[in-house]
Design a protein around this nucleic acid. Structure first.
Lengths: 347, 347
DNA sequence: TTGTAAGCGTTATCAG
DNA sequence: CTGATAACGCTTACAA
């Protein structure tokens, strides 16, 4: 019996030593062949490859990871995998990871800082070679852990406090500006703006951008009603309903995230108002429903796949060169004009 | 210098031996404390825990995985993470995995058998402790690999050839029956049925169920127009448009999967027909758009979260007891009646 | 160019 | 109940 502590019936796995024996070489040679060291004579290398095939050898990543002090795995930490934005992000990252022989472990924080911390501890414990993080808050203590552990990291979607490493962010100020300008151009004077919880940097920047554009256009700031609601569509629905019921209802509504957009659309439909004749709507983020409904939703769209792809590419680079200059990519949103906003309204 | 092959500036990680020294015990004792072996005297254990805290020790999973011959990771293999059905499935599995101290690596096959095989090889290579698989085809060669490697496996959503292990499936015959009976009860005689590629067991069973119910109700089989389209919504759109343009158009349409449902809905809207007055529609799978549109879509719904939860629980069990009786869970779909099907039509 | 052998950090056997 | 120690499978410095 060659190996101890092995139960009798468990089929023994083929190890590198078995391949080595089958090929009549040492494990060092097998290892060199498999990792393309290129320092092995062609005929020997071929003999090894032949033995690999004959024995159905599958390298054991756990041994490899221990020896190399890192495993070929990325952690992708997002706040809600069910949000289409994040599933598209994850899908685009996964594609690049897989193409480079890496696996990704999916971590769903649900915006919970404590879960985030545990996922990061886990990434460190498993000696993962990279992390892509959409942080649950601006607090930087969690991402600090990664920096200290010297794990290649790219922050995506949300800014993190004093973090200075690689990041791929959306120009969220521009998101707000695009929305504001579109409505301003069409003559709107009374606008309801709905934002999500302001903990996220995305929310705050959109708010900033909208307000800046409004002010620059010399619009009366009293015409702007800014509401911060919770992340559920219900809040937006209610806020919209009560705003529409007032004496001087808004002529346009801006919903600063995907969930809010659904709530607002529903509320407007329920109120019996027509879009865009009675009230205009600008939403945020592509989603199936925005083109299935009638009228289709005018919205601000993010280049999600691009963000995922850029983040993954940067992470690959960073793994090669841990101490290079950090990349700070900022991508731009775009306005997709459809049917919930229309012609210029009377002043 | 205690450790070789270590670059000068890389901060040394705290190992178990460091904790052991800090607590004045052996690594064996530290290990026992951390794995709750319970065979350590309380005061000693407390001393160890104190040392763990003081040194900020984080166990190294790679060493652990090598020694234990398995890592605390599940692979979840799905065909399309962007499909809400799968993101919900993954989310529910992830929840249970995380609660049990396990990570999940996400594998996106895009229905590609070769990618599936590579993901499975990777699961074996990484000595993952479990796999949840929504197979890309009925062919069983890939899942065979898992069985041979003695990795706990649960097959979800689609049947796999001769596989006899644990599975969590939807009663897809019932899916077809529910749809058919709903339409039959309302007096429909001419129905257009759209199915996806028949490679998937889900498609075929739905087809079987629909047809069985139709026959049992003694409906003329010529009233049934069965069309198999590709997975893209475009195909469904076209098939619907041409069917509606005929002399005797169908009075109802059944779309057997989520993508098809979108295509059909669009095509009906474009044709100017009203639902349900001119034509009824039964779709498949919950999705945001189905309740955002007007009229809202009557559809067959799957208990996705239940499927994920059951699969994960079974996998946990199987890890404990590799040779127990396989579980074969079959969950039932339900009809959600909304607005695209209506009152009985004249015969 | 190839082989030898020393670890990587952990767990589990065995002896005390 | 605790400690010493031998693996786990792989990579790589060093020797030949």
């Amino acid at each position: 019996m060659k190996r101890k502590h092995q139960s009798i019936d468990a089929p023994q796995r083929v190890r590198m030593i078995d391949v080595a024996r089958a090929a009549g070489v040492s494990t060092a040679t097998v290892s060199r062949v498999l990792s393309n060291a290129g320092t092995v004579k062609p005929d020997l290398a071929e003999r090894v490859m032949e033995a690999v095939r004959r024995t159905h050898y599958v390298p054991d990543s756990t041994g490899r990871a221990l020896r190399r002090q890192r495993s070929d795995v990325w952690a992708v930490i997002v706040s809600d995998i069910q949000n289409p934005y994040f599933s598209r992000l994850v899908a685009s990252i996964e594609q690049i990871a897989t193409a480079n022989g890496l696996s990704i472990v999916l971590c769903n924080t649900g915006e919970d800082l404590d879960r985030e911390r545990r996922f990061i501890a886990n990434a460190i414990s498993q000696r993962m070679c990279g992390v892509i993080l959409t942080a649950a808050s601006e607090a930087d203590e969690n991402v600090e852990l990664l920096t200290r552990a010297r794990i290649a990291t790219v922050v995506v979607d949300r800014r993190v406090g004093s973090y200075e490493g690689d990041s791929v962010l959306l120009n969220n100020v521009l998101v707000g500006r695009l929305a504001a300008n579109h409505l301003i151009e069409r003559g709107h004077q009374r606008v309801l703006c709905l934002f999500g919880p302001s903990a996220a940097s995305t929310t705050f920047d959109r708010y900033l951008g909208f307000q800046a554009a409004w002010t620059e256009a010399h619009r009366d700031r009293h015409g702007l009603q800014l509401v911060e609601t919770n992340i559920h569509a219900g809040g937006a629905r209610q806020a919209t309903a009560s705003a529409l019921a007032r004496a001087h209802p808004p002529t346009a509504i801006y919903a600063a995230n995907a969930v809010l957009s659904m709530g607002v659309y529903r509320a407007v439909q329920e109120s019996g108002r027509r879009m865009p004749e009675d009230v205009s709507l600008i939403g945020t983020d592509d989603a199936d429903w925005t083109t299935m409904v009638s009228p289709q939703v005018t919205l601000i769209s993010q280049p999600v796949e691009e963000m995922g792809t850029r983040a993954a590419s940067i992470l690959l680079e960073r793994m090669e060169d841990p101490d290079g200059e950090p990349h700070h990519v900022v991508v731009s949103p775009s306005l997709i004009e459809r049917e919930t906003t229309g012609a210029t309204i009377a002043p």
